[in-house]
């Protein structure tokens, strides 16, 4: 790639992290709600939910570091200034929730005096003291944040679908796992201060 032209796609690690975590987080959210209403599969689902949540926490921290270290492609010119502000805010919210939800889950199990079991004999130490009210508060918070995360993901998907199907600016190419040459008819603006992933 010519080093003088701005990149049009996110860096390869960013794209891999995005799609890997998209699959993991959606699976996690569905496991989370399904286990609340399943007597037969509750134990199996919770046994997946705990280590998957910790895996998401680890990847979210890696992703946040990666986000700080890599140069991002500029917003497409088809995104208006208010859209850019919304996109940046929703990105911050998604990062905050990706990190907060597993931490609240871990803290909730600690406050509930549960062992934080991963797999085999592996378990994590408690990060909070056992306390009934603290457990109840974190248990409620965990659900509220999960519904907020699902709603934020829906808004994100809706915005990308709108750009793909109605604005038709090939915005998905920015996050495509395969390399995409710049084919959009619209010009790319120089890198702006508000960039998003």
């Amino acid at each position: 790639m010519n080093p003088t032209t701005p990149r049009t796609q996110f860096a390869v690690p960013s794209r891999i992290l995005h799609w890997l975590m998209a699959v993991m987080i959606l699976a996690m959210l569905f496991i989370g709600v399904a286990m609340m209403a399943s007597l037969a599969d509750y134990h199996r689902l919770v046994a997946i939910h705990r280590p998957l949540g910790i895996a998401i926490l680890i990847l979210a921290v890696i992703r946040l570091i990666n986000r700080r270290l890599t140069k991002l492609p500029p917003f497409p010119p088809t995104m208006s200034p208010p859209e850019r502000v919304l996109a940046s805010l929703s990105e911050k919210l998604l990062y905050a929730l990706m990190i907060a939800l597993p931490l609240v889950g871990w803290g909730m199990l600690s406050a509930g005096d549960y062992p934080v079991q991963m797999f085999g004999a592996l378990h994590l130490p408690p990060i909070l003291p056992a306390h009934p009210t603290l457990f109840a508060f974190l248990r409620g918070t965990h659900s509220v944040l999960a519904y907020l995360l699902f709603a934020t993901i829906l808004a994100h998907v809706g915005a990308v679908l709108f750009h793909t199907l109605v604005v038709r600016d090939r915005i998905l190419n920015r996050m495509a796992l395969w390399p995409v040459r710049k084919t959009s008819s619209t010009q790319t603006q120089p890198s702006s201060s508000h960039e998003t992933e």
Binding site: P77, S80, E83, G158, F162, L165, V166, V167, R168, Q187
Partner: peptide, 24 residues
């Protein structure tokens, strides 16, 4: 170049826009 809040593709007919938004 563009000042609109939403830059709907001008090549799409109004009906097509409504159908696509409904699909989303």
């Amino acid at each position: 170049m563009k000042q609109d809040l939403l830059n709907i593709d001008p090549k799409l007919s109004p009906t097509a826009v409504v159908l696509r938004v409904a699909l989303i």
